[in-house]
Design a binder for these strands. Structure first.
Lengths: 163, 163
DNA sequence: CTAAATCAATACTTTTTTGTATGGATTTAA
DNA sequence: TTAAATCCATACAAAAAAGTATTGATTTAG
């Protein structure tokens, strides 16, 4: 399980915006400076976030980027989806991304691997859809408490699917 | 969060071996046939698994691959580690794989993203170290039951490690 | 009106991952 | 002893991801 550069850097920049005061903006050069990235690279994934409707932009002098919604209303899942990627565990069509030589995965029925990824992705989905950009600004122990709640709820969900 | 081709295909082939009767072997062409992959490609990651000590090999006519240990004693974590990858969430040095322009990540202290990945990777670690190749052969409901136990235990671990 | 600061879009280069090809070494069987 | 079947190792090619460069459009300040 790998984290892509876009996921990591894109999330970082989103969190940076989440820390702004209302009506403040940050320009690409400012974000790049804070995160130790190139301006061009920052512009690249900010564009993804913009197209997904997660950030608003203002061009020209004094322009920049800001979150389009309150940080507490933007889940990490939304951020990751905005940033793309081809073989994400959470994708519905995940299996056929690994079809080998044929058009579709050879394990059309009775696949033993699929349930494994399914369970793992279910957890990741649950976790990333409940964690918000706001959570990333809160103290770590709050995150742990929240994580515990998510995990318990997730166990419940799994049980229901089982019966 | 992406799954690499080596992880996916390598795991599949390992599971295929796990399903063999004792003293049976499968050759690379046989595995390739079953999984719909090229013989060369299969050989490639079987070599990784061999070097990690997870499979034994016999050369020559009637040779092939078999698991080096009982399937119940090989965790998915071991399999994934054998197959490599560069930006795995579970890696200790994960952060510095995303250092941007500098040698080390700019967020040396007070990073808000790190705890997030840490928690997620803790779960993945717990899950993949307890799930074995044998589990992949068992019915899905068994897996779910096992998953629940792992999750509960993991919540406990998180509480201890992170507070 | 003009210049500077900014986002927007896309093309390009480099690096990594994915997947194939090739030549060799080992074993078995005839 | 030779041929076929197999693993072993590495080199190569193609595709994707990561990261840079360039050109253009928009806004604001002076």
């Amino acid at each position: 399980m790998n984290v892509s550069a876009l996921e990591e850097y894109g999330l970082r920049c989103a969190v940076t915006l989440a820390a702004l005061k209302p009506d403040e903006m940050l320009s690409a050069p400012e974000i790049a400076e804070r995160e130790g990235l190139s301006v061009e690279y920052v512009s690249k994934f900010m564009l993804h976030l913009k197209k997904a409707g997660l950030v608003t932009t203002v061009r020209g002098v004094n322009g920049g980027f800001a979150l389009a919604k309150p940080a507490a209303e933007i889940s990490l899942k939304e951020v990751f989806e905005a940033l793309g990627g081809k073989r994400r565990v959470s994708d519905e069509d995940f299996c056929n991304a690994f079809a080998g030589k044929s058009d579709n995965c050879v394990h059309q029925s009775g696949c033993s691997i699929r349930p494994f990824w399914k369970i793992l992705s279910l957890y990741i989905e649950a976790f990333t859809s409940e964690m918000t950009l706001q959570d990333m600004l809160n103290p770590e122990r709050d995150t742990i408490v929240k994580t515990e709640k998510i995990a318990l709820k997730n166990i419940q969900t799994m049980k229901e699917q089982l019966s």
